[in-house]
Nucleic acid binder design. Structure first.
Lengths: 216, 216
DNA sequence: AATTGCATGTAACAGGTTACATGATTGC
DNA sequence: GCAATCATGTAACCTGTTACATGCAATT
């Protein structure tokens, strides 16, 4: 449902074609909720079938057409209802922390490699989000500008404040991940120095005698 | 693939039945990678078909049976290979930050409600993970104990250190989310005090004239 | 005439969620 | 005799991913 509401959030500020929407998406909400075009177009069709948006074919050149969508009252209500409803949290499913918990099973080099690329991964995200923060401050993001133009001035402060707030949260998270991974790198060094030979440990449970051993 | 490797990680320390595995799972790796039983049983079958684990039927009482799985050499290698391979990061998809970015569209009360339950949500996770940290320190977690018993003593330090490391990362994250949401609550208060009447803003784009207005 | 950007998808598959379904055994 | 817990799934559905597919329009 989040993709649907992300799309509604964009369309609520004014009509857009699927293509425009998809472009705007990738440079705004897409930083928070990724979705490929191949998911956006069908979702728009479903939303239209559900009566949340209405699309109008527009001619383009000789033969070309494009479909411009605008939210209906039902769509507007659906978005506002979602905003007021309790958020559904998905269960934790974190591959990096999963792997981190078993780093003793691999070589120090593989452990370092993992932690280094974790730093890199989050540094990439961090840059995205910090860039977005700068664009918010400079009021230099097409969607944000559209939004401000479409709303009464007394709401501008709030609109900007909450955008900032959202991206600040993401920036915090990225920084946290980077710090954590750096601590991990230090830990690997420490463990390699302190304890004896660090040999990757192979499961003891292979072969039939293992299951024998553990039978009740 | 992460579920598969989470299961391998547990089975590598010694054979377990599907049921035992599922129980152990929910109090160990399950804190990092959630999976319901209905996913675990079929996954075990698939893993067996792929030759990563082997299951042996054991009789239980008169008619009952249970299937005890142990990892094969191929499974052990698959796990170790995964540990050495680059981790695949999934694209950002964060409903809470998505909603946060549009908090100006709802009432201050709904905004507060969302932020309060965000705090609660992460406080719940935080307790889980802090509890797990305490159990690691007290060496009081059945899976961890099994693991230590199954490994040579010179690896114990590393094993414990990385478990701590993983959970510390999760604890940090939870604390970060809580702080962020609390800042959000303060922000709502601030905005409510500073700016004029805070009225939820309804999309301007409903109705046919709206699309008229925006046509190129 | 060729490239870039506009414009819109489909198909197959993987992974995860929810609800449902069933029965045996052990301890009280 | 009954409850808890051991034990194992299936089916339908939703969401998302990857790869593929197509063609027009505007610009150089």
């Amino acid at each position: 449902m989040s993709l649907r509401n992300a799309l509604l959030a964009l369309l609520r500020v004014g009509p857009l074609s699927g293509y425009e929407l998809q472009k705007q998406f990738s440079v705004s909400v897409g930083h928070v909720w990724h979705a490929p075009d191949s998911q956006i177009y069908p979702e728009l069709r479903k939303m239209e079938a559900a009566g949340l948006i209405r699309g109008e074919e527009q001619v383009r050149g000789e033969r070309g057409t494009r479909r411009v969508y605008h939210v209906t009252e039902a769509g507007d209500r659906a978005f506002l209802d979602w905003m007021e409803s309790p958020l559904e949290y998905s269960r934790v499913r974190d591959p990096a922390h999963l792997r981190a918990a078993y780093l003793e099973t691999t070589t120090p080099e593989a452990a370092r490699e993992f932690l280094r690329s974790h730093v890199e991964q989050w540094q990439g995200e961090l840059e995205q989000w910090e860039g977005e923060l700068r664009r918010i401050d400079a009021v230099d993001n097409p969607m944000l500008v559209r939004r401000l133009v479409a709303t009464p001035p007394e709401q501008h402060e709030r609109t900007i404040a909450f955008k900032r707030f959202a991206y600040e949260g993401l920036v915090d998270r990225a920084r946290g991940e980077i710090e954590w991974a750096r601590r991990g790198l230090a830990l690997v060094d420490e463990l390699e120095a302190s304890s004896g030979a660090w040999t990757a440990w192979t499961a003891i449970s292979s072969g039939p005698e293992a299951s024998e051993r553990a039978a009740p």
